Simulated assay, not measured.
Amino acid sequence: MFHPLRVSEVERLTDDAVAVTFAVPPALRETFRHTPGQHVALRRTVAGTEIRRTYSICAPAGAEPVLRVGIRLVDGGEFSTYAFKELAVGDTVDVMEPTGRFVLEPRAGHFAAVVGGSGITPVLSIAATLLAREPAARFCLVRADRSVASTMFLEEVADLKDRFPDRFQLVTVVSREEQQTGLPSGRLDQERLTGLLPALLPVADVDGWFLCGPLGLVAGADRALRGLGVPRGLIHQEIFHVDEATAGGTAIAKSPSTAAARAPEGSTLTATLDGRSGNWPVREGESLLETVLRSRADAPYACKGGVCGTCRAFLVSGEVRMDRNFALEPEETDAGYVLACQSHPATAEVELDFDR
């Protein structure tokens, strides 16, 4: 569900990124109380066309919810261009309630993250909340950016280093300029991470890994960790950007059983949403989300690109083919969850449950 919220602050972070803070009225404090790592979808309508984009909450989770998101300008991005160039204090934006499973509830242990670019946004909330709430927790952050000038949340990360010098470890790598101190410049790929991570911390003793950023960085970090013997269940991923040129060959397409390549003619979809069920014919070429949206405008979605996971649904019966999946963990797909925005029927009848 979306709620109109007033913009209380727009802070310029870099030459291409801003942090936007929304005022949360007392009646909605519980609604917008977030778990560290979650995101919200923002919505605006331009010339009759609805635009939705998902942005992670960068503020720590606290008793009084602070709704602050980081937005990086994307070439041709309709919402990011608006937020960067036009959005001002006092404006109202429709904001969806926090969601997402790239989260860490504060607990004792040793945790680590590998992030690239704006992938720092949810990890900043995770690390800040963890270190403030749990004295027996440690956090190692490995971050990659193009340059120092393009690095988001420099001051906030430096503050964590000052406040928790014995429990917060920071390693910064820039790819397009030389640094006087720290690691040599260059990309953080699988080979480099395979050598770097064991030199930084005892990889086998880390209780949870959080990978966030562009697809190439996340995929490389995942392969490096798996090669170092880290169990799949300890690796959590969130993709922030997927190049269309690489998406087709890298996306994970899964369904509970082998699916046919084309949808059968006359397929029907039964879907349950907010306790109400409906049954609709699936039109040729459309996703199951599009089928639901024809009759239920309240169906949950944000990116429609298989990245954010907002449209996650449980496959009750039937089979589907997913074009792309950059949001669901293997455990979720194994349990029967699919992304409605990427799913097409592979059997004559399919049933989804958005409420599970």
Rank of each mutant, 00 (worst) to 15 (best):
Glu286Val: 10
Gly229Cys: 12
Thr310Val: 15
Gly285Leu: 07
Cys212Met: 02
Glu50Asn: 12
Val89Gly: 02
Val203Phe: 02
Leu339Arg: 01
Glu351Leu: 04
His344Lys: 10
Arg321Gln: 13
Gly213Phe: 09
Ile120Asp: 10
Val242Pro: 04
Lys304Arg: 13
Thr21Ser: 09
Ala59Tyr: 07
Pro202Ile: 04
Ile120Thr: 08
Phe22Val: 06
Phe102Asp: 03
Glu351Thr: 12
Arg72Asp: 07
Pro98Trp: 08
Asp222Met: 14
Ala259Trp: 11
Ala23Met: 11
Arg107Glu: 08
Phe240Gln: 00
Val218Asp: 04
Gly182Met: 06
Gly76Thr: 01
Ile252Pro: 12
Val203Asn: 04
Phe168Pro: 06
Phe210Pro: 12
Arg312Thr: 02
Gln38Asp: 10
Ala137Trp: 03
Leu104Asp: 07
Leu188Cys: 06
Val114Lys: 00
Leu200Phe: 03
Tyr301Arg: 04
Gly248Asn: 09
Pro184Arg: 00
Ala219Trp: 14
Arg232Thr: 15
Phe164Asp: 01
Pro231Glu: 12
Ala204Thr: 10
Ile51Asn: 09
Phe84Glu: 01
Val103Asn: 13
Val46Trp: 09
Leu200Ile: 00
Arg68Lys: 05
Ala340Ile: 04
Arg6Trp: 06
His241Asn: 10
Val157Ser: 05
Ala17His: 02
Glu331Trp: 15
Gly208Asp: 13
Gln190Ala: 13
Thr258Ala: 14
Leu288Arg: 05
Glu156Thr: 08
Cys58His: 14
Tyr301Lys: 04
Tyr301Ile: 05
Ser175Gly: 11
Val7Ile: 00
Ala253Tyr: 11
Pro231Cys: 10
Thr333Cys: 05
Thr270Arg: 14
Met152Phe: 10
Pro345Leu: 09
Gln237Ile: 14
Leu328Ile: 02
Phe22Arg: 04
Ala158Trp: 15
Ile252Cys: 11
Trp209Asn: 10
Phe2Val: 10
Asp94Met: 11
Val174Glu: 14
Val69Pro: 06
Val40Asp: 02
Val18Gly: 01
Leu352Ala: 03
Gly116Met: 07
His34Lys: 02
Leu193Pro: 01
Ser277Arg: 12
Leu234Val: 14
Leu130Trp: 07
Arg107Ser: 03
Gly249Tyr: 10
Val307Pro: 13
Cys341Ala: 01
Asp355Lys: 01
Pro198Thr: 01
Leu67Val: 03
Leu196Val: 04
Asp16Met: 08
Pro135Cys: 01
Thr129Trp: 06
Arg232Ser: 15
Ala144Lys: 08
Ala128Glu: 11
Leu200Thr: 00
Glu244Ser: 12
Gly195Arg: 00
Met1Asn: 13
Ser56Glu: 12
Glu50Val: 12
Gln237Met: 14
Asp15His: 11
Gly213Cys: 09
Gly117Tyr: 08
Arg33Asp: 14
Leu215Asn: 06
Arg143Ala: 15
Val173Pro: 13
